[in-house]
Amino acid sequence: MHISEGVLAAPVLVGGAAICIGGTALGLRRMSQDEVPKVAVLTAAFFVASLVHVPLGPSSVHLILNGLIGLILGWAAFPALLIALFFQAIFFQFGGLTVLGVNTVNMAFPGVVAYYLCSGMARSDNHLLSIVGGFIAGAGAVAGAGILVAVSLYLSNRAFLTPAKAVLLAHLPIMIIEGIITVIMISFLKRVKPELLRAKEDAPC
């Protein structure tokens, strides 16, 4: 869920922007020149994936896939999500410019955590381990994003406590869907294009 413009307090905005700059700088430094076009096209693909609405109960939710983004891109998830969120801000006005930093951190940071915690498990040849790793990455990254959104709201103003709780609650069903879809996507990628999950190790082109 994106936080809109004008909601957060200035210190939260500035703090988020600072962390976002740090993460993006690290992501860019770890990305070799050869990887730039690949990451760029994958960024576009993730942007498209975020437009996909999956039915859930009487309504539908749109995918975030920040866990999978983290697993595939590692620290490059920061610049990739920064750009995807920038596009959402200027094309659809979801999110915004002053909250771009906070929103990027909220989405990308759990992805990077998933990269460190789960990429070994998700890539493992053991089927069960891979399923568990993928689910934790997919569901955990969405949960992380929900928690960070709630924390940024709460830090801005204590009166946001109730909406922050509601945000967390709304993330619960999305977590499960994202976990399931991430697991299936990983198992598909492992069978069809295993090097995509090992983007870091494989030689450029």
Binding site: D34, V36, K38, V41, V54, L63, I181, T182, M185, P204
Partner: peptide, 20 residues
């Protein structure tokens, strides 16, 4: 949906390589 999106990712990855 998962297979479909995974396919989109694979095609984008391949396209990214060709573009580069």
């Amino acid at each position: 949906y998962a297979y479909l999106l995974a396919m989109v990712l694979i095609r984008s990855y391949e396209r990214g390589r060709r573009v580069y």
